[in-house]
Design a protein around this nucleic acid. Sequence first.
DNA 1: ACCAATTTTCCTGTTT
DNA 2: TAAACAGGAAAATTGG
Length: 274
Amino acid sequence: MSITSSSALDSQLTSTWGPPGLYSDSPLMMSGYASRLWSHESQPQFWSKFQVWEWLQQIMDIHQIDAASIPFQNFDIDGHQLCSLGYHDFIRAAGSVGQILFNSIMELKSSGQYHVDIGQLELKPEPDSCPYPDVGYPPGEIYDPSLCSLAPDASPTPLSPDIKRSFSRNHPVKKHNPRGTHLWEFIRDILLNPDRNPGLIKWEDRTEGVFRFLKSEAVAQLWGKKKNNSSMTYEKLSRAMRYYYKREILERVDGRRLVYKFGRNARGWRETEK
DNA sequence: ACCAATTTTCCTGTTT
DNA sequence: TAAACAGGAAAATTGG
């Protein structure tokens, strides 16, 4: 089957995300880079301070953020302490970058496997093209107020020792993490980067987790690009979305076309993650 | 090489 | 009528 490469969609994607195939070689980058750094790692709650520091470096690297833009001394903590931090703690400690760090650590905690935001690794933007909605921020443009509506002042402040909270040790362990970034996470990350999301998906009800596809085929193309599958369509993407209902990653929203809602098993989309 | 999770692909039928 | 929605069935991918 051939993809629907209508000139409109094509030019939209091209002008917005850069030429097709731009990232086709990126997965290799990840297998070398990430696996070399992290192959022996297990779970973040058992990291040493040094490992936390390594993780920070890694994330900053991936997102091409100047390491000087966040106070590393705020993260002079071990993995257990790191895992006990909430969303606000990350925002306090690292400003808008805290969002990225929070997402990363949530990913690691829930997966039980060691894959640092593989999707974001894969989608390293070209310097002269617009970045993907779910990738790093260009240097000098790190602060994005819309990402931190709960932290109007995103300037990092030192963490007090009392930020440590009790952290349940009974995490659900997931055995499989086939592709690192799943479809629902991809969708979520687009929603979490409104400035890098040129009207592809929009929140309908932010607190309830209801959202709507505005450009369904464009999102499908983007998803396909990420998976190196140029024949992805909304038809097929939506089938995968429907499988999420049973797993309660998504809830049904009937009667409203292109509208979905995050379910109880979807993590990391809330403004305030408990 | 096998296993399992997660899509991807295809399809038929229904709804908006 | 076109675009979405619904799911069943089966193939394909991929990390373990």
